[in-house]
């Protein structure tokens, strides 16, 4: 779900060979989640502010797939729920992980790595000037 939550709808759709027929148990719906932080980073929780989140639930055969994804993209939420349902079928799980989740995860990791390397290029290297007496 972490991977699907960060994948644009077009990217998920491009990797899904054919969209299997499914029923919508809960049509895609955009709402809010209150994001919490902690005082001092590790103290008492407090309400920082809300974020938009879109949810969807589908039935695929006997499996029910759920998705909650950041943002307001209803198509992404539905595709994520569909993949979630399909992944519950042991017969398809491994193939789907390899065909859909792994390439999306690799793409996301590459973006993260590039950013982390860019951040590292701005790391300060101190050197000592001549010591004053």
């Amino acid at each position: 779900m972490a991977v699907l939550a960060r994948a644009p709808a077009d990217d998920i759709a491009a990797l899904l060979p054919a969209l299997p027929a499914h029923d919508r148990l809960r049509a895609p719906e955009t709402g809010l989640v209150m994001v919490r932080g902690r005082a001092g980073g590790d103290g008492a929780p407090f309400n920082l502010g809300e974020m938009t989140v879109t949810r969807c639930a589908v039935r695929l055969g006997d499996a029910v797939g759920h998705a909650y994804v950041a943002g307001r993209d209803k198509r992404q939420a539905e595709l994520a729920a569909l993949v979630d349902a399909a992944l519950q079928d042991p017969a398809h799980h491994d193939a789907l992980m390899a065909a859909v989740i792994a390439p999306l995860a690799a793409r996301q990791q590459a973006v993260r790595d590039a950013e982390a390397r860019r951040a590292a290029a701005t790391r300060v290297e101190f050197f000592t000037m001549a010591t004053m007496r």
């Binding site: 989640v33 209150m34 994001v35 902690r38 980073g41 938009t52 950013e115 951040a119």
Partner: peptide, 22 residues
């Protein structure tokens, strides 16, 4: 935001595990 339903509250975010730009 007042037009949207609230699904609930998140777990407290873990800022020690932030992906840092700065």
């Amino acid at each position: 935001r007042t037009t949207l339903v609230r699904f609930g509250a998140s777990d407290p975010i873990e800022t020690a595990a932030m992906r840092l730009r700065r």
